[in-house]
Design a protein around this nucleic acid. Sequence first.
DNA 1: CGTTGACTTGAGTCTATTCAAATCCTGTGG
DNA 2: CCACAGGATTTGAATAGACTCAAGTCAACG
Lengths: 251, 251
Amino acid sequence: MAELLRLDERRGAVPQDALGLLHQHSLFAAMPTEMFMLFSSAAKKTVLNKGDQLFLQDDPAEWFYFIVSGWIKLFRETIDGEEAVLDVLTSGHIFGESAIFDGGIHMAAAAAAENTVLLRLPTSLLKSAITKNHEVALGMLASISRQRRQQSQDIEKLSLQNTSQRIACFLLRMCKATDQQEVSLSLPYDKSLIAARLSMKSETFSRALNKLQQETSISIKGSTVIIPAVGELAAFACNQCSQEFPCSDLQ
Amino acid sequence: MAELLRLDERRGAVPQDALGLLHQHSLFAAMPTEMFMLFSSAAKKTVLNKGDQLFLQDDPAEWFYFIVSGWIKLFRETIDGEEAVLDVLTSGHIFGESAIFDGGIHMAAAAAAENTVLLRLPTSLLKSAITKNHEVALGMLASISRQRRQQSQDIEKLSLQNTSQRIACFLLRMCKATDQQEVSLSLPYDKSLIAARLSMKSETFSRALNKLQQETSISIKGSTVIIPAVGELAAFACNQCSQEFPCSDLQ
DNA sequence: CGTTGACTTGAGTCTATTCAAATCCTGTGG
DNA sequence: CCACAGGATTTGAATAGACTCAAGTCAACG
């Protein structure tokens, strides 16, 4: 586990396109202009190297974050030192913001899964924005609801799907074109992290991926995945799921 | 699976104490009086027998519900007919309300785990209350956040704890007095439902409970559980958890 | 070219599951 | 009040899935 960053060394000017990206997030899009300006001027660019720890579970949440590029792992660590990965987020997502409703304490730790650029924003500002502005509160409701929905799906999958099916489902979610014949894609982060995200060990992930290649027509070399027929993968995984295949719309 | 209720046959006057209970819920407590009156007069009492199905996943959500007494199981059913139990709720809780943010569709099915009395309320009313009234929106945020927090814990437990530990954790959560010497309690609903709630099979639950009795000093007869030393159970389960023992405060 | 870390593979073990059968419990009708 | 049907729970035996530990392979990087 990498040591905590000395953030001061990594800060620079906030690029304009990052603010543009920020403005597209549903939480900020609904904001009055002058309120968004407050956030813009409070934002600090934060650069993390792969492996850098951003905050720990139970840390007081002074800041929340917006991902400009890269990947962030949210996880919990047990007393015995085991890790449960709750989510792995990328560009366009915020995290750490829900501490506002969790007594001002982060309920999960965060670390960079790849080299990552963030915008750091004060939770106090968001808290007052939510308290003052009804639209922002509604945006926050929509945002948290999406998370809750995804977590419900995760629980369902952990309960009912085996390892190969969870992997197949993970791959299917990466296929944007749902009915295109052949899809070729690149795994977004380390296989060991995908394994942890799907609550399995690296060795199990490797073997389950082999099994998936034997039982379907997909092929994997390194981090490149070729899926000749999306429907075939869906047939493999989606019967143990409560939603029919093109399930990505409602996330 | 029981067939859908003919609700009309089960409706009666809404008892005053049920409305009092409703008013204690954080969502309604923060409401202006006249708005709460709207909900009160729209509320219909609904009585379910054990096993009755209230709504299915993907049903349009015309109503949401407040539990006056009894137990409600929220679950998802796969195409293959397997069930994943997301939560089991009792008196004082609401459910079905989050469909407001899920496209007006229930993301889980609901059925009575025991004989149950509900108040049925229109989602349209809640939706407009949230849209019009800032306090209500904040109450909703607090409510959904609590759910999200609990789901994060569920995911952690599913990922890291074995069956006996999950059961121990379940029992610990039922102990209100955290440091009392001996706790005696009664299982709130069927063992098979507890098993499903903890994502294991009935047989596995039964065996894991035996193991728990061998390895700690707890004893179970029927649905009666006696826990001579709460700390001992905690030592058994809580090392595979990210939170130290008396973890019930923040839910 | 060697080192390091990520990934894979092998062998054995353990946990949880399935399927089948026995037992216990509860509500019901007589 | 009792016998009984039906469901809930437990137990047994065999199996399958995922895990651990150890060793090997691969690829990127200095």
